[in-house]
Design a protein around this nucleic acid. Structure first.
Lengths: 236, 236
DNA sequence: CAGTGGTCTAGACCACTGT
DNA sequence: CAGTGGTCTAGACCACTGC
Protein backbone atom coordinates (compact mmCIF):
# COMPACT_ATOMS: atom_id res chain seq x y z
CA UNK A 1 0.00 0.00 0.00
CA UNK A 2 1.38 3.23 1.15
CA UNK A 3 5.14 3.05 1.27
CA UNK A 4 5.66 6.79 1.32
CA UNK A 5 9.25 7.61 1.05
CA UNK A 6 9.95 9.77 4.00
CA UNK A 7 13.41 10.22 2.64
CA UNK A 8 12.46 13.80 1.87
CA UNK A 9 13.17 13.44 -1.83
CA UNK A 10 9.88 12.70 -3.51
CA UNK A 11 9.42 9.44 -5.34
CA UNK A 12 9.00 11.02 -8.76
CA UNK A 13 12.32 12.82 -8.28
CA UNK A 14 14.06 9.62 -7.28
CA UNK A 15 12.71 7.95 -10.38
CA UNK A 16 13.90 10.85 -12.52
CA UNK A 17 17.33 10.56 -10.97
CA UNK A 18 17.36 6.86 -11.66
CA UNK A 19 16.52 7.40 -15.32
CA UNK A 20 19.21 10.07 -15.59
CA UNK A 21 21.72 7.70 -14.06
CA UNK A 22 20.85 4.93 -16.48
CA UNK A 23 21.42 7.34 -19.33
CA UNK A 24 24.56 8.73 -17.76
CA UNK A 25 25.95 5.23 -17.36
CA UNK A 26 24.99 4.50 -20.97
CA UNK A 27 22.85 1.57 -20.01
CA UNK A 28 20.23 3.41 -21.98
CA UNK A 29 21.35 5.29 -25.05
CA UNK A 30 19.85 7.80 -27.43
CA UNK A 31 16.90 6.26 -29.21
CA UNK A 32 16.52 3.33 -26.82
CA UNK A 33 13.07 2.51 -25.59
CA UNK A 34 12.80 2.51 -21.83
CA UNK A 35 10.41 0.34 -19.81
CA UNK A 36 6.73 1.28 -19.99
CA UNK A 37 5.07 3.15 -17.17
CA UNK A 38 3.32 0.13 -15.78
CA UNK A 39 6.51 -1.84 -15.48
CA UNK A 40 8.37 1.02 -13.82
CA UNK A 41 5.44 1.42 -11.44
CA UNK A 42 5.75 -2.21 -10.38
CA UNK A 43 9.52 -2.17 -10.12
CA UNK A 44 9.59 0.94 -7.97
CA UNK A 45 6.41 0.24 -6.06
CA UNK A 46 4.77 3.42 -7.29
CA UNK A 47 1.46 4.25 -8.82
CA UNK A 48 1.38 4.86 -12.53
CA UNK A 49 0.50 8.52 -12.00
CA UNK A 50 3.72 9.08 -10.11
CA UNK A 51 5.74 7.36 -12.80
CA UNK A 52 3.88 9.41 -15.37
CA UNK A 53 4.83 12.64 -13.66
CA UNK A 54 8.49 11.70 -13.65
CA UNK A 55 8.34 10.81 -17.33
CA UNK A 56 6.47 13.95 -18.31
CA UNK A 57 8.98 16.14 -16.55
CA UNK A 58 11.87 14.41 -18.26
CA UNK A 59 10.14 15.05 -21.56
CA UNK A 60 9.91 18.76 -20.87
CA UNK A 61 13.55 18.66 -19.94
CA UNK A 62 14.21 17.01 -23.27
CA UNK A 63 15.78 13.96 -21.74
CA UNK A 64 13.11 11.65 -23.06
CA UNK A 65 10.61 11.63 -25.87
CA UNK A 66 7.34 9.76 -25.95
CA UNK A 67 5.09 8.47 -28.66
CA UNK A 68 1.62 7.59 -27.59
CA UNK A 69 0.87 4.03 -28.44
CA UNK A 70 4.48 3.09 -28.89
CA UNK A 71 6.66 3.96 -25.98
CA UNK A 72 9.15 6.19 -24.24
CA UNK A 73 12.59 6.74 -25.71
CA UNK A 74 15.82 8.36 -24.68
CA UNK A 75 16.05 11.63 -26.58
CA UNK A 76 18.66 11.84 -29.24
CA UNK A 77 21.86 13.72 -28.95
CA UNK A 78 22.45 16.59 -26.67
CA UNK A 79 22.57 19.77 -28.58
CA UNK A 80 23.38 22.23 -30.10
CA UNK A 81 21.15 25.18 -29.59
CA UNK A 82 23.80 27.42 -28.29
CA UNK A 83 27.11 27.16 -26.76
CA UNK A 84 26.52 30.16 -24.66
CA UNK A 85 29.66 28.98 -23.15
CA UNK A 86 30.17 27.82 -19.65
CA UNK A 87 33.57 29.18 -20.47
CA UNK A 88 35.08 31.66 -18.10
CA UNK A 89 35.16 35.27 -19.14
CA UNK A 90 38.75 35.47 -17.98
CA UNK A 91 39.78 32.79 -20.45
CA UNK A 92 37.81 34.42 -23.17
CA UNK A 93 39.56 37.73 -22.67
CA UNK A 94 42.99 36.19 -22.33
CA UNK A 95 42.47 34.12 -25.45
CA UNK A 96 42.01 37.36 -27.34
CA UNK A 97 45.43 38.41 -26.10
CA UNK A 98 43.96 41.08 -23.84
CA UNK A 99 44.51 41.77 -20.19
CA UNK A 100 41.96 40.50 -17.74
CA UNK A 101 41.24 42.02 -14.35
CA UNK A 102 38.30 42.14 -11.97
CA UNK A 103 36.93 43.99 -9.00
CA UNK A 104 34.82 42.51 -6.23
CA UNK A 105 32.04 44.96 -5.38
CA UNK A 106 30.08 42.88 -2.93
CA UNK A 107 30.09 39.48 -1.27
CA UNK A 108 27.62 38.72 1.47
CA UNK A 109 24.98 36.38 2.73
CA UNK A 110 21.53 37.34 1.51
CA UNK A 111 18.01 36.84 2.82
CA UNK A 112 16.28 37.65 -0.45
CA UNK A 113 13.33 35.29 -0.19
CA UNK A 114 12.58 34.99 -3.87
CA UNK A 115 16.15 34.06 -4.60
CA UNK A 116 16.32 31.62 -1.70
CA UNK A 117 13.28 29.92 -3.14
CA UNK A 118 14.79 29.83 -6.58
CA UNK A 119 17.78 28.09 -5.10
CA UNK A 120 15.50 25.56 -3.46
CA UNK A 121 16.72 26.41 0.03
CA UNK A 122 14.88 26.64 3.35
CA UNK A 123 13.99 30.22 4.29
CA UNK A 124 17.11 30.64 6.37
CA UNK A 125 19.17 28.32 4.23
CA UNK A 126 22.45 29.83 3.29
CA UNK A 127 22.40 31.88 0.11
CA UNK A 128 25.20 34.18 -0.95
CA UNK A 129 25.25 37.20 -3.18
CA UNK A 130 28.23 38.59 -5.04
CA UNK A 131 28.86 41.31 -7.56
CA UNK A 132 32.01 41.47 -9.63
CA UNK A 133 33.05 43.67 -12.52
CA UNK A 134 35.22 42.09 -15.18
CA UNK A 135 37.62 44.24 -17.17
CA UNK A 136 39.26 43.76 -20.54
CA UNK A 137 42.31 46.03 -20.81
CA UNK A 138 40.87 47.98 -17.87
CA UNK A 139 37.62 48.60 -19.69
CA UNK A 140 34.61 47.23 -17.77
CA UNK A 141 32.96 44.69 -19.95
CA UNK A 142 30.76 42.59 -17.71
CA UNK A 143 28.97 43.00 -14.40
CA UNK A 144 28.36 39.65 -12.80
CA UNK A 145 25.50 39.66 -10.32
CA UNK A 146 25.44 36.24 -8.76
CA UNK A 147 23.49 34.29 -6.17
CA UNK A 148 24.82 31.02 -4.89
CA UNK A 149 23.36 28.02 -3.11
CA UNK A 150 25.30 27.79 0.14
CA UNK A 151 24.61 24.11 0.58
CA UNK A 152 26.29 23.30 -2.71
CA UNK A 153 29.13 25.80 -2.25
CA UNK A 154 29.60 26.29 1.49
CA UNK A 155 32.97 27.95 1.04
CA UNK A 156 31.77 30.57 -1.41
CA UNK A 157 31.52 33.34 1.15
CA UNK A 158 35.20 33.01 2.04
CA UNK A 159 36.62 33.38 -1.43
CA UNK A 160 38.52 36.43 -2.54
CA UNK A 161 38.16 35.85 -6.26
CA UNK A 162 41.50 37.45 -6.87
CA UNK A 163 43.03 34.57 -8.74
CA UNK A 164 39.90 32.77 -9.74
CA UNK A 165 36.52 33.87 -11.00
CA UNK A 166 33.40 32.53 -9.26
CA UNK A 167 32.76 30.51 -12.37
CA UNK A 168 36.14 28.83 -12.12
CA UNK A 169 35.78 28.27 -8.39
CA UNK A 170 32.41 26.63 -8.77
CA UNK A 171 33.38 24.49 -11.71
CA UNK A 172 36.16 23.08 -9.58
CA UNK A 173 33.82 22.11 -6.76
CA UNK A 174 30.72 20.88 -8.57
CA UNK A 175 30.52 20.87 -12.34
CA UNK A 176 27.28 22.05 -13.87
CA UNK A 177 24.87 19.34 -14.82
CA UNK A 178 22.25 21.50 -16.43
CA UNK A 179 22.04 25.06 -17.60
CA UNK A 180 19.11 27.25 -18.46
CA UNK A 181 19.61 30.70 -19.82
CA UNK A 182 17.75 33.71 -21.11
CA UNK A 183 19.16 36.45 -23.22
CA UNK A 184 17.52 39.84 -23.19
CA UNK A 185 18.24 43.42 -24.06
CA UNK A 186 17.62 45.94 -21.30
CA UNK A 187 18.27 49.50 -20.44
CA UNK A 188 20.85 49.52 -17.69
CA UNK A 189 19.64 50.14 -14.16
CA UNK A 190 21.68 52.70 -12.23
CA UNK A 191 23.93 50.28 -10.37
CA UNK A 192 24.84 48.59 -13.63
CA UNK A 193 25.42 51.81 -15.47
CA UNK A 194 27.75 53.02 -12.76
CA UNK A 195 29.67 49.81 -12.43
CA UNK A 196 30.21 49.57 -16.17
CA UNK A 197 30.66 53.29 -16.75
CA UNK A 198 28.00 53.31 -19.41
CA UNK A 199 26.40 56.22 -21.20
CA UNK A 200 22.82 56.98 -20.26
CA UNK A 201 20.45 55.27 -22.66
CA UNK A 202 22.96 52.70 -23.86
CA UNK A 203 21.36 49.26 -23.92
CA UNK A 204 22.70 46.22 -22.13
CA UNK A 205 22.93 42.71 -23.42
CA UNK A 206 21.82 40.62 -20.47
CA UNK A 207 22.57 36.95 -20.07
CA UNK A 208 20.72 35.30 -17.24
CA UNK A 209 21.80 31.80 -16.40
CA UNK A 210 20.79 29.14 -13.91
CA UNK A 211 22.99 26.18 -13.30
CA UNK A 212 21.85 22.95 -11.72
CA UNK A 213 23.79 20.41 -9.74
CA UNK A 214 22.00 17.23 -8.73
CA UNK A 215 18.66 18.71 -9.66
CA UNK A 216 18.78 21.82 -7.52
CA UNK A 217 19.70 25.29 -8.65
CA UNK A 218 23.31 25.77 -7.61
CA UNK A 219 23.73 29.30 -8.85
CA UNK A 220 21.76 32.03 -10.55
CA UNK A 221 23.77 34.65 -12.33
CA UNK A 222 22.86 37.75 -14.28
CA UNK A 223 25.60 39.00 -16.59
CA UNK A 224 25.22 42.59 -17.74
CA UNK A 225 27.19 43.80 -20.76
CA UNK A 226 27.32 47.19 -22.40
CA UNK A 227 25.88 46.64 -25.87
CA UNK A 228 28.68 48.59 -27.46
CA UNK A 229 31.40 46.47 -25.94
CA UNK A 230 30.13 42.94 -26.01
CA UNK A 231 28.29 40.43 -28.11
CA UNK A 232 27.62 36.77 -27.84
CA UNK A 233 28.47 34.58 -30.75
CA UNK A 234 28.53 30.94 -31.58
CA UNK A 235 28.39 28.27 -34.15
CA UNK A 236 26.89 24.86 -34.71
CA UNK B 1 -18.17 11.85 -11.28
CA UNK B 2 -16.57 11.54 -14.56
CA UNK B 3 -17.45 14.53 -16.69
CA UNK B 4 -14.57 14.09 -19.08
CA UNK B 5 -14.29 16.95 -21.43
CA UNK B 6 -14.18 15.35 -24.81
CA UNK B 7 -13.53 18.76 -26.25
CA UNK B 8 -10.12 17.48 -27.27
CA UNK B 9 -8.24 20.05 -25.21
CA UNK B 10 -7.48 18.50 -21.87
CA UNK B 11 -8.91 20.03 -18.74
CA UNK B 12 -5.57 21.04 -17.27
CA UNK B 13 -4.77 22.89 -20.47
CA UNK B 14 -8.07 24.70 -20.42
CA UNK B 15 -7.41 25.76 -16.87
CA UNK B 16 -3.95 26.98 -17.82
CA UNK B 17 -5.46 28.97 -20.64
CA UNK B 18 -7.99 30.45 -18.27
CA UNK B 19 -5.28 31.56 -15.87
CA UNK B 20 -3.28 33.06 -18.73
CA UNK B 21 -6.34 34.95 -19.88
CA UNK B 22 -7.01 36.33 -16.43
CA UNK B 23 -3.44 37.59 -16.33
CA UNK B 24 -3.62 38.87 -19.89
CA UNK B 25 -6.79 40.77 -19.07
CA UNK B 26 -5.09 42.12 -15.97
CA UNK B 27 -7.77 40.78 -13.69
CA UNK B 28 -4.85 39.19 -11.95
CA UNK B 29 -1.64 41.15 -11.79
CA UNK B 30 1.93 40.46 -10.83
CA UNK B 31 2.09 39.52 -7.17
CA UNK B 32 -1.62 38.82 -6.81
CA UNK B 33 -2.67 35.68 -5.06
CA UNK B 34 -4.90 33.49 -7.16
CA UNK B 35 -7.58 31.15 -5.79
CA UNK B 36 -6.36 28.05 -3.97
CA UNK B 37 -6.39 24.68 -5.69
CA UNK B 38 -9.45 23.44 -3.88
CA UNK B 39 -11.52 26.41 -4.92
CA UNK B 40 -10.42 26.16 -8.54
CA UNK B 41 -11.22 22.47 -8.46
CA UNK B 42 -14.77 23.20 -7.33
CA UNK B 43 -15.29 26.04 -9.78
CA UNK B 44 -14.11 24.06 -12.74
CA UNK B 45 -15.49 20.72 -11.66
CA UNK B 46 -12.05 19.14 -11.58
CA UNK B 47 -10.13 17.06 -9.13
CA UNK B 48 -7.42 18.78 -7.18
CA UNK B 49 -4.73 16.73 -8.93
CA UNK B 50 -5.75 18.14 -12.27
CA UNK B 51 -5.72 21.66 -10.94
CA UNK B 52 -2.37 20.94 -9.37
CA UNK B 53 -0.92 19.83 -12.67
CA UNK B 54 -2.05 23.02 -14.38
CA UNK B 55 -0.54 25.12 -11.60
CA UNK B 56 2.73 23.21 -11.56
CA UNK B 57 3.16 23.62 -15.28
CA UNK B 58 2.51 27.34 -15.05
CA UNK B 59 5.18 27.51 -12.38
CA UNK B 60 7.74 25.85 -14.65
CA UNK B 61 6.70 28.28 -17.33
CA UNK B 62 7.34 31.09 -14.87
CA UNK B 63 3.85 32.43 -15.06
CA UNK B 64 3.08 31.68 -11.44
CA UNK B 65 5.00 31.18 -8.24
CA UNK B 66 3.87 29.20 -5.25
CA UNK B 67 4.69 29.23 -1.58
CA UNK B 68 3.71 26.16 0.31
CA UNK B 69 1.44 27.04 3.16
CA UNK B 70 0.55 30.43 1.81
CA UNK B 71 -0.65 30.38 -1.75
CA UNK B 72 -0.16 30.78 -5.47
CA UNK B 73 0.82 34.11 -6.94
CA UNK B 74 1.16 35.65 -10.35
CA UNK B 75 4.87 35.95 -11.10
CA UNK B 76 6.04 39.52 -11.25
CA UNK B 77 8.13 39.01 -14.25
CA UNK B 78 7.63 39.17 -17.91
CA UNK B 79 7.62 37.09 -20.91
CA UNK B 80 8.96 33.82 -21.88
CA UNK B 81 10.45 32.77 -25.05
CA UNK B 82 12.57 30.91 -27.27
CA UNK B 83 15.88 29.54 -28.06
CA UNK B 84 18.43 30.16 -30.67
CA UNK B 85 17.27 27.12 -32.47
CA UNK B 86 16.64 26.95 -36.17
CA UNK B 87 13.02 26.64 -35.25
CA UNK B 88 10.50 28.69 -37.15
CA UNK B 89 9.10 31.68 -35.36
CA UNK B 90 5.65 30.71 -36.57
CA UNK B 91 5.88 27.37 -34.82
CA UNK B 92 7.24 28.97 -31.77
CA UNK B 93 4.32 31.35 -31.52
CA UNK B 94 1.75 28.70 -32.29
CA UNK B 95 3.24 26.38 -29.72
CA UNK B 96 2.53 29.02 -27.13
CA UNK B 97 -1.10 28.88 -28.22
CA UNK B 98 -0.92 32.34 -29.74
CA UNK B 99 -1.92 33.57 -33.15
CA UNK B 100 0.77 33.98 -35.74
CA UNK B 101 0.64 36.38 -38.66
CA UNK B 102 3.15 38.17 -40.83
CA UNK B 103 3.51 41.01 -43.26
CA UNK B 104 5.87 41.12 -46.21
CA UNK B 105 7.39 44.58 -46.39
CA UNK B 106 9.86 44.05 -49.19
CA UNK B 107 11.08 41.35 -51.57
CA UNK B 108 13.46 42.24 -54.35
CA UNK B 109 16.73 41.49 -56.03
CA UNK B 110 19.57 43.45 -54.52
CA UNK B 111 22.88 44.70 -55.83
CA UNK B 112 24.35 45.42 -52.41
CA UNK B 113 27.98 44.57 -53.12
CA UNK B 114 29.02 43.84 -49.56
CA UNK B 115 26.19 41.40 -49.15
CA UNK B 116 26.83 39.76 -52.52
CA UNK B 117 30.38 39.20 -51.42
CA UNK B 118 29.30 37.77 -48.12
CA UNK B 119 27.13 35.32 -50.00
CA UNK B 120 30.13 34.32 -52.12
CA UNK B 121 28.46 35.31 -55.39
CA UNK B 122 29.84 36.95 -58.53
CA UNK B 123 29.19 40.71 -58.68
CA UNK B 124 26.02 40.26 -60.70
CA UNK B 125 25.17 36.95 -59.11
CA UNK B 126 21.60 36.78 -57.95
CA UNK B 127 21.04 37.94 -54.39
CA UNK B 128 17.64 38.65 -52.92
CA UNK B 129 16.55 40.83 -50.07
CA UNK B 130 13.37 40.48 -48.03
CA UNK B 131 11.88 42.12 -44.99
CA UNK B 132 9.04 40.57 -43.06
CA UNK B 133 7.39 41.49 -39.79
CA UNK B 134 6.18 38.62 -37.63
CA UNK B 135 3.27 39.15 -35.28
CA UNK B 136 2.17 37.32 -32.17
CA UNK B 137 -1.49 38.07 -31.50
CA UNK B 138 -1.14 41.03 -33.87
CA UNK B 139 1.70 42.47 -31.83
CA UNK B 140 4.85 42.87 -33.93
CA UNK B 141 7.52 40.77 -32.32
CA UNK B 142 10.24 40.28 -34.88
CA UNK B 143 11.52 42.10 -37.95
CA UNK B 144 13.31 39.69 -40.24
CA UNK B 145 15.78 41.39 -42.55
CA UNK B 146 17.09 38.69 -44.84
CA UNK B 147 19.50 38.31 -47.73
CA UNK B 148 19.48 35.13 -49.74
CA UNK B 149 21.88 33.41 -52.10
CA UNK B 150 19.97 33.12 -55.39
CA UNK B 151 22.03 30.19 -56.59
CA UNK B 152 21.02 28.11 -53.62
CA UNK B 153 17.40 29.30 -53.57
CA UNK B 154 16.53 30.36 -57.14
CA UNK B 155 12.81 30.40 -56.46
CA UNK B 156 13.04 32.69 -53.45
CA UNK B 157 12.02 35.82 -55.32
CA UNK B 158 8.73 34.25 -56.40
CA UNK B 159 7.49 33.27 -52.96
CA UNK B 160 4.59 35.01 -51.31
CA UNK B 161 5.41 33.83 -47.76
CA UNK B 162 1.75 33.81 -46.94
CA UNK B 163 1.60 30.23 -45.79
CA UNK B 164 5.23 29.66 -45.12
CA UNK B 165 7.98 31.70 -43.51
CA UNK B 166 11.26 32.13 -45.41
CA UNK B 167 12.80 29.89 -42.81
CA UNK B 168 10.34 27.10 -43.54
CA UNK B 169 10.69 27.56 -47.29
CA UNK B 170 14.46 27.34 -47.17
CA UNK B 171 14.54 24.41 -44.78
CA UNK B 172 12.42 22.51 -47.28
CA UNK B 173 14.81 23.20 -50.17
CA UNK B 174 18.20 22.96 -48.56
CA UNK B 175 18.61 22.22 -44.88
CA UNK B 176 21.22 24.23 -43.04
CA UNK B 177 24.56 22.55 -42.65
CA UNK B 178 26.22 25.17 -40.52
CA UNK B 179 25.10 28.17 -38.57
CA UNK B 180 26.99 31.11 -37.15
CA UNK B 181 25.26 33.71 -35.05
CA UNK B 182 25.85 36.82 -33.04
CA UNK B 183 23.56 38.22 -30.41
CA UNK B 184 23.71 41.88 -29.59
CA UNK B 185 21.68 44.62 -28.00
CA UNK B 186 21.13 47.72 -30.10
CA UNK B 187 19.08 50.83 -30.17
CA UNK B 188 16.57 50.43 -32.96
CA UNK B 189 17.24 52.25 -36.22
CA UNK B 190 14.27 54.13 -37.62
CA UNK B 191 13.06 51.49 -40.07
CA UNK B 192 13.06 48.90 -37.31
CA UNK B 193 11.37 51.14 -34.81
CA UNK B 194 8.59 51.89 -37.24
CA UNK B 195 8.08 48.32 -38.37
CA UNK B 196 7.90 47.08 -34.78
CA UNK B 197 6.04 50.08 -33.40
CA UNK B 198 8.63 50.58 -30.71
CA UNK B 199 9.03 53.41 -28.27
CA UNK B 200 11.97 55.71 -28.88
CA UNK B 201 14.94 54.59 -26.83
CA UNK B 202 13.71 51.05 -26.34
CA UNK B 203 16.53 48.60 -26.99
CA UNK B 204 16.41 45.76 -29.47
CA UNK B 205 17.66 42.26 -29.00
CA UNK B 206 19.34 41.50 -32.30
CA UNK B 207 20.09 38.02 -33.53
CA UNK B 208 22.30 37.91 -36.60
CA UNK B 209 22.63 34.55 -38.26
CA UNK B 210 24.45 33.13 -41.26
CA UNK B 211 23.55 29.73 -42.57
CA UNK B 212 25.76 27.66 -44.80
CA UNK B 213 24.84 25.02 -47.36
CA UNK B 214 27.64 23.13 -49.03
CA UNK B 215 30.20 25.54 -47.71
CA UNK B 216 28.76 28.77 -49.08
CA UNK B 217 26.64 31.26 -47.21
CA UNK B 218 23.08 30.47 -48.21
CA UNK B 219 21.37 33.19 -46.22
CA UNK B 220 22.21 36.05 -43.91
CA UNK B 221 19.46 37.19 -41.63
CA UNK B 222 19.17 39.89 -39.01
CA UNK B 223 16.31 39.39 -36.58
CA UNK B 224 15.29 42.49 -34.65
CA UNK B 225 13.18 42.11 -31.52
CA UNK B 226 11.80 44.72 -29.16
CA UNK B 227 13.53 44.07 -25.86
CA UNK B 228 10.28 44.36 -23.97
CA UNK B 229 8.51 41.73 -26.01
CA UNK B 230 11.08 39.08 -26.66
CA UNK B 231 13.87 37.13 -25.11
CA UNK B 232 15.89 34.17 -26.14
CA UNK B 233 16.14 31.24 -23.85
CA UNK B 234 17.47 27.75 -23.88
CA UNK B 235 18.81 24.86 -21.96
CA UNK B 236 21.53 22.31 -22.15
C1' DC C 1 -6.10 -7.13 -30.95
C1' DA C 2 -2.78 -6.06 -26.98
C1' DG C 3 0.45 -2.56 -25.58
C1' DT C 4 1.38 2.02 -24.65
C1' DG C 5 0.89 6.73 -23.18
C1' DG C 6 -2.70 10.80 -21.99
C1' DT C 7 -5.75 12.15 -18.87
C1' DC C 8 -8.68 12.17 -14.90
C1' DT C 9 -10.77 11.17 -10.23
C1' DA C 10 -11.68 11.11 -5.20
C1' DG C 11 -9.84 10.49 -1.88
C1' DA C 12 -5.42 10.63 1.51
C1' DC C 13 -1.48 12.17 4.48
C1' DC C 14 2.05 15.39 5.03
C1' DA C 15 4.74 19.99 5.61
C1' DC C 16 4.58 24.48 5.94
C1' DT C 17 2.43 29.30 6.76
C1' DG C 18 0.19 32.58 9.34
C1' DT C 19 -2.86 33.90 12.95
C1' DC D 1 -5.32 26.10 14.69
C1' DA D 2 -7.19 26.34 9.77
C1' DG D 3 -5.53 27.15 5.18
C1' DT D 4 -2.54 26.00 1.60
C1' DG D 5 0.43 23.47 -1.42
C1' DG D 6 3.34 18.80 -2.15
C1' DT D 7 2.86 14.31 -2.97
C1' DC D 8 0.81 9.88 -3.65
C1' DT D 9 -2.53 6.05 -4.71
C1' DA D 10 -5.46 2.68 -7.19
C1' DG D 11 -8.12 2.58 -9.94
C1' DA D 12 -10.52 4.28 -14.69
C1' DC D 13 -11.45 5.41 -19.66
C1' DC D 14 -9.57 6.95 -23.80
C1' DA D 15 -6.55 7.44 -28.22
C1' DC D 16 -3.12 5.89 -30.72
C1' DT D 17 0.44 2.35 -32.54
C1' DG D 18 1.72 -1.75 -34.51
C1' DC D 19 0.95 -6.32 -35.29
Amino acid sequence: MNTKSHTSTPAYQQLKDHVLQMIEAEHWRGGDMIPPEEQLAKEFGLSRMTVNRAMRELVTERVLMRIRGSGTFVADTRYQSTLIEVRSIADEIKSRGDTYSSKLLLLQRTDDIAMIQTLGLPPDGPAYHSRIVHFENDVPIQLEDRHVNGLVFPGYINQSFENETPNEYMTGIAPAQGVEYWVTARQAPAFVRQALKMAIGEPCLVLHRRTRVRGTVATDVVLWHPASRYQLSGKF
